[in-house]
Amino acid sequence: MTTPAEAPNSGGHTDGFPSQGPHPVAGTFPRSDAEVAARVKAMESILVEKNLIASDAIDYMSSVFENEVGPHLGAKATARAWVDPEFKLLLLADATAACHQIDIGGIQGEEMIVLENTEDVHNIVVCTLCSCYPWPVLGLPPNWYKYPAYRARTVRDPRGVMAEFGFDPGPDVEVKVWDSSAELRYWVLPRRPEGTEGWGEEELAALVTRDSLIGLTDVSVPE
């Protein structure tokens, strides 16, 4: 660990750090998450507009950590639904309320719908226009979610896209493709894998992947 006093001085500044004026910070900086999230978004849009940084470069850095926020919340909700039938009913009827019950928040005015995979139906989610994504539950979208190739192909050939992720829902299963938008975001409740009877919620949650919550794969028990 590097303490402030020992912070490396590899830059071209003779005093180690750029000269600092007084820091009038107290009380002026936004506090709520919605405000600071808006500020981050605003900063990004200005910097990209001025060609000071490419959006792709920010996406790329984000992608390194895209698994660090979110999918574990979707996994938690999924595992709870597998062990608690009442919670599952609520999750399918009113996902936003169900998520609030286990302290998963969202943005006001956004509706979430959870689609249940069954023996007969497999659901897969896409945003055909851009990259609308249930980020309070799944975190940031993976880069490929935004690619035209994913958006167009998932509608045209969902089985082919799933095959690229190594998954085949089976010939007897109907595949439904759902289009997320900014005010209505879908995610998938995968089927509980066989051989997990009696497992605890945390163990179950550890099996749930981001891709399974988008509907690209199922949830399986590692061999």
């Binding site: 750090f17 998450d33 940084i53 470069a57 920010i58």
Partner: peptide, 25 residues
């Protein structure tokens, strides 16, 4: 804990990577 945190992190690291500023700054 929040998506905006990753985005803020990514803006800073991407700009540094691009040469906009040195990390010690």
């Amino acid at each position: 804990n929040h998506a905006w945190e990753i985005r803020a992190f990514a803006i800073a690291t991407a700009m540094h990577d691009d040469g906009a500023f040195d990390w010690p700054e």
